[in-house]
């Protein structure tokens, strides 16, 4: 589910803005570190979980406004270089601020320990993350499908020129989409922190996965991102059970296999 969340955010950014966002993984990591720090300051996990992703969204807002906006006409190569440079800055910035050594983050007291589900004993926090991620995906879906702003965003994916001809400020739409994508990356990072701990390299690992989700699910395709996220998550857990070392490589192998059979992705119509 976390993969779906990451893929969804990236899919929004890539689909609407039409740029390859290589800073998405770094935003994920920043989300996790923001959570740790706000938790340290305010002392309340729930408040931190609300605040940290908002911080990432604000960061995304600033990045879009200052950096990406001048580059819409520049071609993918320069956009890529920009977001790649940004990802270097963010992940090295994390090392400068929080140090090169990772640390772990405990979940809040209520969610520690496990829950007996009858057939399996499952950690409470992981269950919480699954439910949370599911709700967030649902909320994003409702936002995109049922609200006026969501409709504008979907229209932006389909045809930007037409949208701007209809009198909608396309730049504001882009900024909003980037901020929303950054928010989703940030909250995915914040939720992950208590499961996997924090390390400066966490963003890059996630970035590859997010790109796989988007490549399989299709740009701006919500359902595709969810399906691809689930597919990869399940494939990874099954392989991790039998052959731990291969559990990351299998994500990409699944992608390669799907693309061999269906070059246009899971739901693509080319």
């Amino acid at each position: 589910m976390l993969y779906a969340l990451m893929g969804l955010g990236l899919s929004l950014i890539t689909g609407i803005l039409n740029i390859p966002n290589f800073a998405h993984g770094a935003l994920f990591a920043v989300g996790a570190y923001f959570l740790a720090s706000t938790l340290h300051v305010v002392g309340n996990f729930w408040l931190a979980l609300v605040l940290a992703p908002v911080g990432v969204a604000v960061l995304g807002l600033a990045i879009e406004y200052a950096g990406i906006r001048p580059l819409y006409r520049a071609g993918h190569d320069y956009q890529l270089l920009f977001t790649f440079g940004l990802s270097l800055i963010l992940s090295e910035g994390i090392i400068v601020v929080w140090g090169p050594i990772g640390f772990s983050q405990l979940p809040p007291p209520i969610l520690r320990g496990g829950l007996d589900l009858g057939f399996i004993f499952y950690p409470k926090y992981r269950l919480f993350v699954m439910v949370m991620a599911g709700l967030l995906v649902l909320a994003t879906w409702l936002f995109l499908e049922k609200t006026r702003y969501g409709a504008i965003m979907r229209a932006g994916i389909e045809d930007k020129e037409m949208v701007s001809l209809l009198g909608i400020d396309i730049h504001r739409l882009f900024t909003a989409a980037f901020a929303l994508g950054a928010y989703l990356a940030g909250i995915a990072g914040a939720l992950t922190a208590p499961i996997r701990g924090l390390s400066p390299g966490m963003g890059v690992d996630m970035l590859g996965i997010a790109f796989v989700v988007v490549a399989l699910g299709g740009l701006g395709n919500l359902l595709g991102a969810i399906a691809a996220g689930l597919l990869i998550g399940v494939a990874q857990s099954i392989v991790a059970f039998y052959w731990t070392e291969a559990s990351v490589a299998v994500i990409f192998a699944v992608m390669a296999a799907v693309l061999l059979v269906r070059p246009q992705g899971l739901f693509g119509i080319r």
């Binding site: 390859p20 890529l80 590859g208 790109f211 490549a215 994500i251 070059p263």
Partner: peptide, 20 residues
């Protein structure tokens, strides 16, 4: 695998396979 797609997908695929 990569040349079957173009544009952004191409970039993402080269990157994802690099990660593999």
């Amino acid at each position: 695998l990569c040349v079957q797609r173009s544009g952004l997908y191409f970039i993402m695929l080269t990157f994802a396979l690099n990660q593999m």
